[in-house]
Each structure stands twice: as C-alpha cells, then as structure tokens.
Amino acid sequence: MSLSKHLRSAITEEMDHHGGPRAAMLESLRMIQQEHGWVSDEHLEEAATLLGVTTAEIEDVATFYSLIFRQPVGEKVILLCDGASCYLNGAEDVRDAVMKRLGIGFGQTTPDGKYTLINICCVGGCDHAPAGVIGRNRKLVGPLTPETIDEILGEDAK
C-alpha cells in the first residue's frame, strides 16, 4: 500500500519548512508512523523518493530513534517504564504480569496483532509509578499493579 495523498503532500510540504529535505526526513517518518502505526520498507522508500534523499540516509535516522518503529506493531503499543522510580515501586511485577498475560516479551507482538510490548526509559510519570504509556496517543497510565493490568489491556486481553 503506498502513502496516502495527504501524507504525500504533508511530506513535501515539510520539505519547504526548515532545513529542506534532510530535516524533513524525521518528521516524515513520524507522520507515516502516526498514520500507519509503523514505518514499512515500502513507505520508507516512498518517503525517500519524495524527499530526494537516499534510502540509506533516511534509514540512518529511522533506526537511530527509538520511537520510530521499523517493524510492524500491534494495534495497541504498550510502553512500560523500566526506570528506577518505577522499579522501586514494583514495575517488575507489573511487567511480569503483563508478559504472562500476553505471552510475549519486550519487543514482541502478540500473534493476533493486538499488542506490542516495549520497554521505555522513564516516561515522566514517576509520580504515578509504576507507569507506562499506551496506544498511539501515548496515554500515561499508572500506578499500575499486577491486579489492575486488565484495565490498561482492555477487555480483549482476558
């Protein structure tokens, strides 16, 4: 599937902003991901062509930043904080509970494509520790407990 018309024009528009095509690469990747959840090879290649940069150049930044996903992710991306404050408040019990429930580890997606679990550094939710951010809009959740993970996973995870 190729990029939608409005994404294509958003990408070319970005180029006229600041710094030209180079500076627009990262923003293009973010926009693609916002729409598709992740950045596929096909979309990356298309963005490169639109921007007049090489695939190597765009992959250089795409693979540097941790929140550009170059692999398909589930419908809901769960980013669990593994920072110290969360750790001190039982993050690992929450982590274990989520992993057990979903049957996946960090960096994995459930076979049904519903969830992807990723560890992330401190999400700025230390006052809600253990915390995480969920979904495309990165909603902050916490304090989590092994007992309340159903709430963040939603109904389908039961």
Binding site: G83, A84, S85, C121, C122, G124
Partner: peptide, 11 residues
C-alpha cells in the same frame, strides 16, 4: 526532552 530517570518536572 526530559527523559532522565526520575525526572518529571518539565511535564
């Protein structure tokens, strides 16, 4: 950017 572990003040 605020990503330091334990930092949540700029938020």
């Amino acid at each position: 950017d605020e990503m330091e572990p334990g930092a949540f003040k700029d938020r």
